[in-house]
Simulated assay, not measured.
Amino acid sequence: MRGLKKKRRIQIIALAFVSLALAVGLIGYAFQDGINFFRSPSQVLAEPPSPNETFRIGGLVEQGSLQRGQGETVRFRVTDGGGAVPVTFRGVLPDLFGEDQGMVGTGRYINGVFEATEILAKHDESYMPKEVIDALKEQGVYQPDGEGS
């Protein structure tokens, strides 16, 4: 009787461990598509990500680079002062999107061009995403409250 209880306890502990490992594995797999890492243009140029990796890129829209194509296709370059990456986007841009303005885009880097599926622009005159500010400070081109340009 005593050996049977011990054996049953070991089976329950083993089953709980396997269930926990399976749950952690499933959660990790589910989050794999939902996690988008942020990269600055300099980081993208230094270490280009694979074409199937979705990530976020941010910086300033380079002056003179905004081109509106046929239909809803827009082309521009995003820069952090240390490098500039060409971006294409098909869709409607936010109202506050413009040259020399902060932006963050989500998409993939394919054949040297960032193909954005989503573009976010700053929502007022002083806001810029923290990741973009950090990347610009790292390159030495961040000037708070628009004191440069």
Score class of each variant (00 low, 15 high):
Met1Gly: 12
Met1Thr: 09
Gly3Leu: 10
Leu4Tyr: 01
Lys7Tyr: 01
Arg8Gln: 11
Arg8His: 09
Arg9Cys: 00
Ile13Met: 14
Leu15Tyr: 05
Ala21Arg: 05
Ala21Glu: 00
Val24Leu: 13
Gly25Phe: 03
Leu26Ile: 10
Ala30Asn: 06
Ala30Glu: 06
Gln32Glu: 14
Gly34Val: 13
Gly34Ile: 11
Ile35Cys: 02
Asn36Glu: 13
Asn36Trp: 11
Phe37Glu: 10
Ser40Asp: 11
Ser42Ile: 12
Pro48Ser: 13
Ser50Ile: 11
Pro51Asp: 07
Asn52Asp: 15
Glu53Val: 15
Glu53Arg: 14
Phe55Glu: 07
Phe55Ile: 12
Arg56Gln: 12
Ile57Gly: 00
Gly58Trp: 07
Val61Cys: 04
Gly64Ile: 08
Ser65Glu: 01
Ser65Ile: 05
Gly69Pro: 00
Gln70Gly: 02
Gln70Pro: 00
Gly71Arg: 01
Glu72Gly: 02
Glu72Asn: 04
Arg77Tyr: 05
Thr79Tyr: 05
Gly81Trp: 02
Gly81Tyr: 06
Gly81Asn: 06
Gly82Ala: 07
Val85Arg: 06
Val87Ile: 13
Phe89Asp: 03
Phe89Lys: 02
Arg90Gly: 01
Gly91Val: 00
Gly91Lys: 01
Leu93Asp: 02
Leu93Ser: 06
Asp95Glu: 14
Leu96Gly: 03
Gln101Tyr: 06
Gly102His: 10
Met103Leu: 11
Gly105Thr: 05
Arg108Lys: 15
Arg108Ile: 04
Tyr109Asn: 06
Asn111Pro: 05
Asn111Val: 05
Asn111Gly: 04
Ile119His: 03
Leu120Tyr: 07
Val132Thr: 15
Ile133Gln: 14
Ala135Met: 10
Glu138Tyr: 08
Val141Ser: 01
Val141Met: 04
Pro144Ser: 11
Pro144Tyr: 10
Asp145Phe: 15
Glu147Asn: 12
Gly148Ile: 14
